[in-house]
Write a protein that binds this DNA or RNA. Structure first.
Length: 497
RNA sequence: GGCGCGGUAGCCAAGUGGUAAGGCAGAGGCCUGCAAAGCCUUUAUUCGGCGGUUCGAUUCCGCCCCGCGCCUCCA
């Protein structure tokens, strides 16, 4: 079955394939770098990452563009408060965001593009709209988009705007009084006192919210491209306005397919600072939660379904990752009898087939996960019965590789990331937020594999001599460093906590 | 008010017109110097409630209850 993906534009699940060649051209709205990323942000980015990885595994090539919004009201306000240029202010959060992406094993897009580096492209787009009479300049110098010129306005958000002309109410913000119609939105904002602005052919000012995405998407992907993705809140007005701007300018379909990721709940409620359930990735890591647990939890519910992010769920996800990693370690470290068991190869192949079928079905990650757990259970059982042989291991590991090409949780880099986060917290004077659990997990990152191996060897020797007192002491010593040592009938093995 | 999504075991959650995947947790057992890891058995006569269609509905329709989202800069 070809890849099926829900399209917010048509409201239907449709086959998704690139229009030209084998290259998928897509744009995903990135962060506004005014603060550290929270788990809600990362649900969206993880979902897009799953899309990316599935397309790649399906043999597609990608041109994935993500914007970084490095100028907006909040950025200007916060930078002014700190008395630093906005570029300095945003650089810090952009760096933090990229680090967080890495911690969550989110692949980098082929191109990351900053709003402030594409001002000329935006101006050109606005000028084009002005020429067509779709953009107009208000008395204060701001430019607006005239929605009445775009009959299809509302086609993405399925809103009916007829009869909703100028509302005479007091809903309009002070800087919007110049608009001809209440629905019109800003393309270019004239500078206010103390605001960063650019001198341009259409006058001084700064970009409206939506224009950057239209300009950058078309710059790198062309006037018409395959897919546009983002959080569900962006559907209106952001994406609706992007369509209006772009299609009015070019007369062509902007993005053919639209993907929107649903918001998550935290402990059953919408995440908000006032409810006290607002968490950045860094908050959670400092509390002692591994990035891999967070990633798995974010992927465990299909992207179109509301995900209830809870601390209980985080523990469950951590245990699930443990089971998967234990399985991989077992395959890699056990002594296997010579031979081949066609049944094992069949189980491996079947699991991958099922996983991919689930992903082809609108990225059903929950079902894909089930396929891989079936493999784990079946192969563990076969191994206990001595039915797994040396010749089967490559195929089984290959299946796990295929799984991890999508889910990205088997490689254990948690300790390193936790350590980096702990160090960041110290630099930022957030020491009081560092939990004992985080410290313990960070500790094992200071222990190289060679260090561990040396102690493991010491443990094994003592054990061989049935000096359990010494062997247990070494094991406890390792545990105190965040290393778990296990003895199995097939030998000794270790892993980081 | 307009538009939309969802309510499945203790928790997370998939799914289908023919009688409920998977994960986590719990219980019992096997294995084991200990500790783990792993395996086996077990945990929803039932899928928010009430009606309807049907030989048969958790799955289709209607109503009701509950939760949630968007409706101008929050992913």
């Amino acid at each position: 079955m070809p890849f099926q993906l829900f399209n917010s534009l048509s409201g239907k699940t449709e086959e998704f394939a690139p229009a030209q060649d084998n290259l998928v051209r897509f744009y995903a709205c990135g962060p506004t770098v005014y603060d550290y990323g929270h788990i809600g942000n990362f649900r969206t980015f993880v979902a897009v990452d799953v899309l990316r990885r599935h397309l790649l595994q399906s043999g597609r090539q990608l041109l994935h563009v993500m914007n970084i919004t490095d100028v907006d009201d909040k950025i200007i306000r916060n930078a002014n408060q700190k008395g630093v240029p906005i570029g300095e202010y945003t650089a810090k959060f952009e760096k933090a965001f990229l680090e967080d992406m890495d911690a969550l094993a989110i692949q980098q897009p082929e191109r990351i593009s900053r709003a402030t580096e594409n001002i000329p492209e935006m101006i050109a787009l606005i000028q084009g709209l002005a020429k067509k009479g779709v953009a107009y300049q208000a008395e204060d110098g701001s430019w607006y988009y005239r929605i009445s010129k775009f009959p299809e306005y509302g086609k993405l958000s399925k809103k009916d705007f007829t009869g909703l002309i100028t509302d005479g109410s007091g809903r309009m913000d002070a800087d919007e009084y110049e608009k001809d119609d209440a629905r019109d939105f800003a393309l270019w904002k004239a500078p206010k006192e103390g605001e960063t602005s650019w001198d341009t052919a259409i006058g001084p000012g700064r970009p409206g919210w939506h224009i950057e995405c239209s300009a950058m998407a078309m710059k790198y992907l062309g006037e018409s491209f395959d897919l546009h993705a983002g959080g569900e809140d962006l559907l209106f007005p952001h994406h609706e306005n992007e369509i209006a701007q772009s299609e009015a300018a070019t007369g062509k379909t902007f993005a053919r397919h639209w993907m929107h990721v649903r918001f998550l709940l935290v402990e059953g409620q919408k995440m908000s600072k006032s409810l006290g359930n607002f968490y950045t990735l860094r908050d959670l890591v400092l509390m002692g939660h591994k990035p891999s647990s967070i990633r798995l939890l974010l992927m465990s519910v299909p992207y179109r379904k509301q995900l209830n992010f809870t601390f209980d769920g985080l523990v469950q996800a951590a245990n699930s990752v443990e089971r998967l990693r234990n399985f991989k370690i077992r395959l890699e470290t056990s002594q296997w009898a010579e031979g081949n068991n066609p049944e094992a190869a069949a189980v491996a192949k079947n699991a991958v087939t099922e996983m991919r079928a689930a992903l082809d079905d609108d990225l059903n990650t929950a079902q894909a996960l089930a396929a891989i757990f079936d493999l784990v259970r079946d192969v563990n059982a076969m191994a206990d019965q001595g039915k797994v042989t040396k010749g089967d291991i490559p195929a089984l590991l290959e299946a796990l590789t295929k799984f991890d090409e999508i889910f990205g949780v088997l490689q254990d880099h948690d300790a390193t990331h936790i350590k980096a986060t702990v160090e960041w917290a110290r630099r930022e004077n957030r020491e009081e937020k560092i939990s004992a659990a985080a410290l313990e997990m960070a500790q094992s990152a200071s222990f190289s594999d060679a260090d561990v191996e040396a102690l493991v060897a010491k443990h094994s020797e003592a054990r061989k001599a049935r000096d359990f007192k010494t062997s247990d002491a070494v094991r406890d010593e390792l545990l105190a460093q965040g290393i778990i040592l296990e003895n199995t009938k097939d030998g000794v093995r270790w892993k980081r906590k």
